[in-house]
Design a protein around this nucleic acid. Sequence first.
RNA 1: GCCCAGGUGGUGAAACUGGUAAACACGCUAGAUUCAGGUUCUAGUGCCCGCAAGGGCUUGGAGGUUCGAGUCCUCUCCUGGGCACCA
Length: 880
Amino acid sequence: MDERYAFRDIEARWQARWEAERTFRAEDLSELPKHYGLEFFPYPSGAGLSVGHCRNYVPTDAYFRFKSMCGFNVLHPMGWDAFGQPAENEAIKRGRNPREMVPEYAASYRQTLRRIGASYDWSREIDSSRPDYYQWTQWFFLLLYHRGLAYRASTPINWCPACKTGLANEEVEQGRCWRCETTVEKRPMPQWYFRITDYAERLLADLETIDWPDGIKQMQREWIGRSEGADVDFAVAGRSETIRVFTTRPDTLWGATFMVLAPEHPLVELITVPERRAEVDAYVRRASTETDIDRMSAERAKTGIDTGARAVNPVTGEPIPIWVADYVLMGYGTGGIMAVPAHDQRDFEFARRYGIRIDLVYAHPEGPRSGEEMARALPDGGSMLDFTPAPGARTPKAPFAGLPNDRATVRKVIAWLEEHGVGTGRVYYRLRDWLISRQRYWGAPIPIVHCGACGEVPVPERDLPVLLPDVDQYEPSGTGESPLAAIPAFVSTACPACGGAARRETDTMGGFACSSWYFLRFADPHNASAFADRRLVDYWLPVDTYVGGAEHAVMHLLYARFWTKVMHDAGLLAFSEPFSRLRNQGTVLAYTLGRRPRLGERADGEDGGEGIVDWIVLRPDERESCPPDQVVFRWVKMSKSKGNVVTPDEIAERYGADSLRLYLLFVAPFEDNVQWSDEGVHGAHRFASRAWRWCVSAMRAQTRSAPADAARGVRARRKLHQTIEKVTAGLEGFRFNTAAAALMELVNELYLYRPADAEPGADASDPAIVSEALDALVLLIAPFMPHMADELWSRLGREGSTYRAAWPRHDPAVAAEERVTVVVQVNGKLRDRVEVAAGASEEDTRAAALASPRIAELLAGRTVRKVVVVPGRLVNVVAN
RNA sequence: GCCCAGGUGGUGAAACUGGUAAACACGCUAGAUUCAGGUUCUAGUGCCCGCAAGGGCUUGGAGGUUCGAGUCCUCUCCUGGGCACCA
């Protein structure tokens, strides 16, 4: 009877040993090639880590252990994204100080990560809310400031009346606060911005240089939103003003039969004719009170009003009406558009509704020849018509008649417009500057002083950090000002320039500031005189493998890329992209019972899931009384408020951390969502025990010799080398599930060769083969089940952890199959299989297939038209 | 509406470049073994017809290309995610 797999003892023992021996310490400036592996640093929440979080941390841990075994000097650090609103909101809810909460929660996270065998170098732990960290966040703010990339502007900001704070554009979803779903209002407020728009082109272009999922790159491209076209100036008839518009289709200028200005456009006031003024004013006023949701609803019929003013189409010379309509936005382009109803569906609908002329620019020979005949706009196709300009035109007759409706024509038209001084080729971006300031307590204070005499003065570097004061009251003030504004000792200071009385800036930086550079700090986390030593940054960075959830696909990643480029430009970094390779893990979903909400009912979650929702978690005491037709079943992300959290600790207690790890690696491809199942863990546990039994029994076998079953030995050895190859490729490609499947196949094969219950001397296995398999298997399972692997490794008499052991190599000669099965098809239908030597030629393969009695029988009396041979794979006989 | 990712057994899934569809697991069925056991082992398990040999069908649906399609092309339906009057 073999020893049982005592995972609780083994795991506790090895965790203690790894810690005591500092097994996962990364070595600065080592001779070895480095691999910097990083997961998005978490915000430590009171809810603790669930197995859902492990879906991120376990596969990456397996990968980084694998890299270490492959001879890389691995940096695998962990830290806490502790500043920001999640932490502050939780502190407010619990009536506690975030300063005390963060270390407690971090300790709990650290404990759980240790429990699942994660290989972090804890000597590099960082906490973004500590002065020794945010001092450098402030330092970077000053760097941006001095480079002209941080500025203060008073703009109407999004104001959430419930959170009593300003929101970035990115934090507003469909006109509502992304956190509490309250309708967002507009409020003028001086705010700090980072000029990320200066980097739009580079942020777009450099996406080509990095290994990221295509979907994420695409989302970034759309966020940046580059569009190419031309600025065109329209003269206002009878006035000196001109209206500048941006268009992606300057080639359709000949069909621009009206213009539309956004209601907020400054020219509306100036150009509206007296007799239309009252109506236009009323329309503008109505538009300003409408919520964004109403205004952005695409279903709503377009409304607008004629200003009575006329513009002159520069190429046709025709006067065209100028309208005001709320579907044109002041925040994009120039706030005004030229409308071409013949070739833009939106303009077409508007023109039809208000009886505006529709002129074709492109037409098909057999298509409609006039606006009246059209049922809808023709955005593409056709060839350009011939136009004769009216006397008011600023250009001569255009030479484009007959050209196709494509980008080449657009480019020709732009060149021609430039030549005649009517338009200029231009690129617009949807990307807007990054609103960085928050009127919140829990963030890094912005290191600026406002002086009556000197104005805005940056805090000198030697005076950093600007410490966040300890306070009792850190709730948002509700006046729109930061709680810091209520602390005289913080606010009043001396001007660094003139020494006179001055006021500190009281806004803090949003959490994205801290997370835009933290990956640099891990290179040198305790440095007190710089954000990091240049040599260490040059050695460790950029991050080789960065892994996290797709929910950060745009903002965090874009901001981190931006900061990196700024630092690169400042000569601080040799590289300009922070994350060479990015991967996104899937989410763990857990089954949850809920009910339909009552009218107007809101959910009030502990950690997310607040607001208006279409279902509400059923409390245990409601389960009986809830009418069946009101019950809903949902697979949702684990969270405390959903009551569906499974903790790693409970699973590790029952099945062991190694079984949990194997389960998470095996269930599904890394990037897929998975539905949590206890049974799945049980299956993983079975494999773990099975592997353990085989190894333990194989160790006893080594000491004796017996007549060997040579053929089986060759098979077992071949399988071993094939498995090394598969697992190596699988880990490198983040295909953990198939790598684990390969391990299972290997263990199944080894059981056939030497059953785990074989008595010493009774089986026919070759000790040399068993020993080779044992060594390799222990190393192969190490990234998956490191505790078990280290225990077995030490029992094999090896020193230290498998973490520092060399990853096994496969011998292609041993892995190669001697004979292969070739499939024989007749007219594409599988009819027989024949065995041939592995390297058999096309002729031999064909001959073997045709020699099959079954095939001969099937072909009797038929004519063979063709025989397709794929050596090593199949033969397909095409017959009548 | 637009963009992205997906639809494969009872379940999670596998199939790198077109070449044996369903590897590996979970579950289920039968047998053996042991026990205090949620143990272990062996065999079976896509669907339909058939006692069997064997045959037919099958990767959301419909067409197409090919000797051959889960994989390529066209259309279409469904699911998940993102963006949304962007000029």
